[in-house]
Simulated scan of single mutants.
Amino acid sequence: MPEGKIVKALSGFYYVLTADGHITQCRGRGVFRKNKITPLVGDMVVFQADNDQEGYILEVLSRKNELVRPPIANIDQAILVFSAMEPEFSTVLLDRFLVLIESKEVTPLICISKMDLLEEDEKLMGFADYYREIGYEVIMTSTKEPEQLKQILPYLKDKTSVIAGQSGVGKSSLLNVLRPELELKTDDISSHLGRGKHTTRHVELMEINDGFVADTPGFSSLEFLEMSAEEVKECFPEFVSISDQCKFRECTHLKEPKCAVKAAVEAEEIAPFRYKHYVSFVEEIKDRKPRY
């Protein structure tokens, strides 16, 4: 049986791309509903086709990860697009994305867009430098300068990437520069709401520079529904790197004595804003109502 990757899911149909570049429109067999498995964009699948155009998905192969909102699987990398202005750069929202992405073992790439709207800003540059220091790749871009955007291309090669970030930051504009023939619809910021108008309606993988990039409707939920409070500390790399210096092996970095993380925060070796976000995320999970 042939195998392929689902590159688009729309109205109950799954579009499966095979190694030779052919796309077959498939439906899922009823067995998926019985087993509570929903094929996702990014899935590798086994399918059966009676002709060149239509077929049925028979099996979803093992996934290395999956996101729920947006629904996509087997992601290598998340390009987190945050604007310098309009909307204003938000470290708490970026950290929320980073924790969610880290929890799925997906590599983040931080892209700060709309740099053309901002004069040299020491505070923003300081944030960018700090994220680089703790191990993240950070690039600065502007859709007014297409050559700047092309610095993303090497990161896309041979990877499946998802572009994420708050609405109105320029995600579709970024894709339009990387592949102008896409002509993706973009909208300006809503002056009434102060946020971007949603422009992408479904998940689809597009081939760019020998890799796949997903333009998604955005993260409709940024809640830590699948995480425990204990898991959050593992998603802060600067905590992980010194946690073995804590007195207690299972230190939560909250109230324990002789905590290396808290000491590093007090010494400003770890940014206080990151620790503040960590505490608030843990409290949010602990306050979460149990799901039945």
Results as ranks from 00 to 15, higher is better:
residue 163 I to W: 05
residue 159 K to V: 04
residue 124 L to T: 00
residue 117 L to A: 12
residue 149 L to V: 10
residue 197 K to H: 09
residue 190 S to N: 15
residue 136 Y to V: 01
residue 176 N to M: 11
residue 137 E to H: 03
residue 184 L to V: 09
residue 152 I to Y: 01
residue 126 G to L: 01
residue 134 I to C: 03
residue 113 S to V: 12
residue 208 I to L: 09
residue 126 G to M: 00
residue 140 M to N: 04
residue 125 M to D: 03
residue 158 D to A: 14
residue 158 D to V: 08
residue 128 A to D: 07
residue 169 V to Y: 01
residue 121 D to T: 09
residue 131 Y to S: 00
residue 142 S to E: 06
residue 168 G to I: 08
residue 137 E to Q: 06
residue 161 S to G: 09
residue 151 Q to K: 12
residue 133 E to A: 08
residue 158 D to W: 10
residue 194 G to C: 10
residue 184 L to M: 14
residue 175 L to Y: 03
residue 204 E to P: 03
residue 125 M to I: 01
residue 137 E to G: 02
residue 195 R to C: 11
residue 163 I to K: 02
residue 190 S to I: 10
residue 171 K to S: 01
residue 150 K to Q: 11
residue 129 D to E: 12
residue 112 I to C: 00
residue 132 R to M: 05
residue 111 C to F: 00
residue 204 E to W: 00
residue 160 T to L: 08
residue 117 L to S: 12
residue 186 T to L: 05
residue 162 V to Q: 05
residue 115 M to A: 07
residue 133 E to T: 05
residue 138 V to A: 01
residue 207 E to G: 14
residue 157 K to V: 12
residue 150 K to E: 08
residue 192 H to F: 15
residue 197 K to P: 02
residue 140 M to Y: 02
residue 187 D to Q: 11
residue 184 L to T: 07
residue 145 E to T: 12
residue 190 S to E: 12
residue 117 L to D: 10
residue 192 H to W: 14
residue 129 D to C: 05
residue 127 F to R: 00
residue 179 R to D: 15
residue 156 L to C: 05
residue 206 M to E: 11
residue 135 G to V: 03
residue 146 P to Y: 05
residue 129 D to V: 04
residue 198 H to R: 13
residue 157 K to Y: 15
residue 129 D to N: 08
residue 145 E to K: 11
residue 144 K to S: 11
residue 137 E to P: 01
residue 138 V to T: 05
residue 115 M to T: 09
residue 183 E to Q: 14
residue 136 Y to Q: 01
residue 135 G to E: 01
residue 143 T to G: 06
residue 120 E to Q: 14
residue 123 K to A: 13
residue 161 S to T: 10
residue 111 C to S: 08
residue 185 K to A: 14
